[in-house]
C-alpha cells in the first residue's frame, strides 16, 4: 500500500470516534441479546415464536449503521489515491510534481543545451574550488 498523502488530524479523529462508536454499539447489541436470553419470556404459552431472538432496539441499529458509515468515510480518506489512466493527464501530473515526465528525453537533447549557463556554472565551480584550495 502506498501512502503518498499524509493522513490529516480530522480523519484520524473521525476513525477514532467511529471505532469507539462501533465498539459501543457491538457491546450494546451483545448485552441486549444476552439480557433477553436470560430473562424468562413473558407469557410463554400465549404465542409461539420460532425465532427466540428479539429485535434490536432502533437506537442500536442506527448507531451501528452510522458508525460503520463514518468509519468507511475515514478509511477511504486515509491516504489512498488513484492515478489518472489517460496518458496526457498522467504525463502532465508527473511533469508538475516530479519535474520530469515520459518526454524528458525530448527536452534534454544536445541541441537544447544552454551552453552559456553550463559555462558560467563551471566557472563558478572552478572559482569556488580554488577558493577552498587557497584557504
Amino acid at each position: 500500500m502506498s501512502n503518498p498523502t499524509p493522513i490529516s488530524i480530522g480523519t484520524k479523529l473521525l476513525i477514532l470516534f467511529s471505532s469507539v462508536l462501533l465498539a459501543h454499539s457491538i457491546y450494546s447489541a451483545h448485552e441486549h441479546t444476552h439480557l433477553y436470553s436470560t430473562r424468562p419470556p413473558p407469557q410463554a404459552s400465549t404465542s409461539y415464536s420460532p425465532n427466540p431472538q428479539h429485535k434490536l432496539p432502533l437506537d442500536i441499529i442506527l448507531e451501528t449503521i452510522i458508525s460503520v458509515s463514518l468509519l468507511s468515510i475515514g478509511i477511504v480518506l486515509s491516504g489512498w489515491e488513484f492515478r489518472p489512466i489517460q496518458w496526457r493527464k498522467w504525463a502532465g501530473q508527473l511533469e508538475r510534481e516530479k519535474g520530469q515526465g515520459p518526454y524528458e528525453f525530448l527536452e534534454s537533447r544536445l541541441g537544447f543545451i544552454d551552453i552559456r549557463a553550463k559555462r558560467s556554472e563551471f566557472a563558478s565551480w572552478v572559482k569556488e574550488h580554488e577558493a577552498t584550495k587557497a584557504t
Partner: peptide, 29 residues
Amino acid sequence: NPVVQESVLHNTKTISDLRSLLSSLLGIA
C-alpha cells in the same frame, strides 16, 4: 487517447485493497 497500463493496475489494486478492508468492516455491522 493512450492508456497508462501501470496506472490502471495501481487503481485496480487500490480498489481491491479498499474493498476487502471495507467489506470485513461491513461484515461486523
